[in-house]
Amino acid sequence: MTQHIDSVKTYALVFIALVFLTLLTTAVAYVDLGPFSPVVALAIATAKMLLVALFFMHVRHSTQLTRLVVTGGLLWLAILIFLTLADFGTRGWLGVPGR
């Protein structure tokens, strides 16, 4: 069996990083970054997601197939959001009401 057991120290470091990022994202929300504040918030959330997935969920040690499943799933989420926004984002371009 190819089972990797990470050390408690690794997990603890990841844990500390996650708590730090939580405090960071809360603090940053009070700073006026204009249109970039959601970008920063999502970037931090994505970083946290990667930490949890790679270390706590062992994607670091997983098979290629599992990684494919994960990236494929996120890609599909992107398709859903992007193509719908392709509608909502371009409404009104034509200047005709209701189009």
Binding site: S37, P38, I44
Partner: peptide, 24 residues
């Protein structure tokens, strides 16, 4: 464990999206 961490990840996104919209 996988399931639990996943639910955690969902919250990691919900927190900034629901609580932290343009606090300033």
């Amino acid at each position: 464990g996988l399931y639990w961490h996943f639910v955690d990840i969902i919250w990691i996104f919900l927190f900034p999206l629901l609580y932290l919209v343009d606090r300033h």
